[in-house]
Design a protein around this nucleic acid. Sequence first.
DNA 1: TAGGCACCTATACCAAAGTATAGTTCTGTC
DNA 2: GACAGAACTATACTTTGGTATAGGTGCCTA
Lengths: 205, 205
Amino acid sequence: MPNILIADDHDLVRDTIAAYLETVDDFKVQTAANLDAALELMRGIDSFDLLILDYHMPGMDGLNGLERARKAFPATKVALLSGVANREVANKAMENGANGFIPKSLTAASLVNAIKFVLSGERYFPFDFGAATTPDAPSATFANLSDREMQTLEQLCIGLSNKEIARNLGVQEVTVKLHVKNVLAKLGVSNRTQAALLAKEKHLF
Amino acid sequence: MPNILIADDHDLVRDTIAAYLETVDDFKVQTAANLDAALELMRGIDSFDLLILDYHMPGMDGLNGLERARKAFPATKVALLSGVANREVANKAMENGANGFIPKSLTAASLVNAIKFVLSGERYFPFDFGAATTPDAPSATFANLSDREMQTLEQLCIGLSNKEIARNLGVQEVTVKLHVKNVLAKLGVSNRTQAALLAKEKHLF
DNA sequence: TAGGCACCTATACCAAAGTATAGTTCTGTC
DNA sequence: GACAGAACTATACTTTGGTATAGGTGCCTA
């Protein structure tokens, strides 16, 4: 039966998660309200399999807390739990050797899956985490573009001039200008740089 | 017992994976050498739980194959398998609804874990995949920029015109042109769009 | 078969971008 | 106090970008 330690300063969050894990599966769960209390508990017990650390919690000091925990108990897997961290932080955590990153937006079922995954030796990271920056009502704007306009936009996104684009597409420069003008209008931007930036932002090319 | 279908045109790869999965855990595995053969097999059987598609395989046509498979059998989970794809492709695959992305660099044990993970309804994506794209020898190019040039570049990255930048910085338009010219020279690009694109790519702003 | 649309071209014009040269002011350094 | 570099301005110029109008072709569909 896996030994799990959850450290979170929000009592409600901590205790409900603990209770859920114990009922739903064969986990033995203990809890702590801050990092030092957690480390103290770990010193008393022979071995925890997994330590779940809230990212915002007394004693954490950003990712330093993660570092401390990992150095003190190298054999114990550590997962970071956070409701607010951005992708930057999450990536840094993984680079610093965390075995998992658990956003609080996860469903309870997914949490269990994630924990099992980590316990089996894998590293859990929700691939789309932080992707919510732009919920991507995808390319409603870009759908109106004709084939040629799309091709023109694609070349715009490499920073080519109208003349170069004309050569690449095998048409006259005037034609390219026409396409560019239409693209700008359809995308609702005022110059080619903005068009390129917008397309890149939406990961079109 | 989960039903798995592996489609890969490399016989050795396909068959060894299949054999391994069957011995190591309770999977029922079938195989196909290309996408069409795979879809044909799926039409014959009531339901596969997981379809593993090689990214480079006859019939795939990039991510179109993924699309085809997902549309034809919406109830079956689909994971992409690839030895060469870059992070771009991997992300696109996930955005297009793949349930997992499996790089061939995975260990056998991790493969099994990943498959179980996907079968349990989660989406598997190795968090550090393709992180080697740009280790970011950061801004060797950008270090030479003076303060004003940097500010100018920043505004360039929103797609502003020289006139607007001049207003924002409280200087004459000519001055902005000068800065822009210097920025282009120092970055080794030939117009403002390329400069903006480059800066964005390096995540400067 | 008539209309609509994507696509291409032409001419023309004005605005914006980019280049070149020259000069001023300020600041920090040798 | 001389010098170098960053920042700013001015004038003048060429190239590129973007707009406007008008017209030609081919394809598809009502």
